[in-house]
Simulated scan of single mutants.
Amino acid sequence: MKKTLLLIPLLICTSNFTFAETNSTAPVAASQVITPLAANTIRISTRPEILGLWGMEIPNNKKCVEYYNFRGGNEVVVNSGKEWSIGLFDYQPSPDNTKEKLPALIMQIKYENNQVDCSGYQENQAGEVSQYFVRWKNENTIKFCASEKEDKCFATLNRVLP
């Protein structure tokens, strides 16, 4: 009697494995295939905190806003009045988020349409490289500075879109 009671669960378990094996050979849609590596892998993607659309009001021209769109792939698009510029940027956050050393931002303009900007200037900036220090006032307001000193900040940008 004891042998029969022990054999029944064993047979049930074995039949489940046999059933599972015969089902696993059935065709599966490509979207349903999960490789063991993908099933056990966690990918963490970080992105620079500066990514997004930022706007800067020009002091002498409140009607015109200069926009900086920091996009993925280190691409930046700048729009100021009728001027459009496209380039690359490199954002280096401060080490250990300390306030003693400000984050650095380098931008290189690759192309621009050479139209009049918000300040009324028409200057072809293609090929120019600019370096700024970024002073974070809060998560939605930053200042571009010529040095790490606060008195050397010349532009305030406000976040428009994340």
Rank of each mutant, 00 (worst) to 15 (best):
Q122Y: 01
V116E: 15
Q122F: 01
A38T: 08
S119I: 03
R159Y: 06
A38P: 02
E139D: 15
I12D: 04
P9S: 06
R135A: 08
E112I: 02
K63R: 07
L157K: 00
P103S: 05
K143Y: 13
I8K: 04
P93I: 04
N61H: 07
N114T: 12
C13D: 05
K2M: 04
Y121H: 07
T18A: 14
L7P: 00
E128H: 10
W54M: 03
L5Q: 08
L161H: 02
G120H: 08
I109E: 05
D90F: 10
V116D: 05
L7W: 06
S24V: 11
C153I: 00
N79W: 07
Q122C: 05
L161D: 03
L88N: 14
S85E: 10
K101N: 11
V160M: 01
N140L: 01
S31Y: 09
S80C: 04
F70H: 02
N61G: 03
A29S: 14
F17H: 11
I44E: 14
T41W: 05
V77C: 02
L6M: 06
Y132Q: 13
R71K: 15
Y68N: 02
F17A: 11
V33K: 13
S45H: 12
I44T: 15
E75A: 11
K110T: 14
L105I: 08
F89K: 05
K82A: 14
S80P: 01
G81K: 04
I50K: 03
E139L: 12
K143V: 03
T4H: 07
D90Q: 13
G52A: 02
Y132P: 07
Q108V: 15
Y91M: 08
I42Q: 11
V134E: 03
P162Y: 12
E139G: 06
V33E: 10
I142D: 02
S80D: 01
I42R: 12
G52T: 01
V28I: 15
R71A: 14
V77L: 07
G72E: 13
V77W: 03
I34E: 01
K99L: 15
I8Y: 07
G120A: 09
S130N: 10
K143H: 12
T25H: 11
Y67M: 08
P9R: 06
W54Q: 01
A30K: 12
N74E: 13
V76E: 03
E75Q: 13
P93C: 05
A20N: 09
L37M: 01
I58P: 00
I58T: 06
C153D: 00
L6I: 06
N74Y: 11
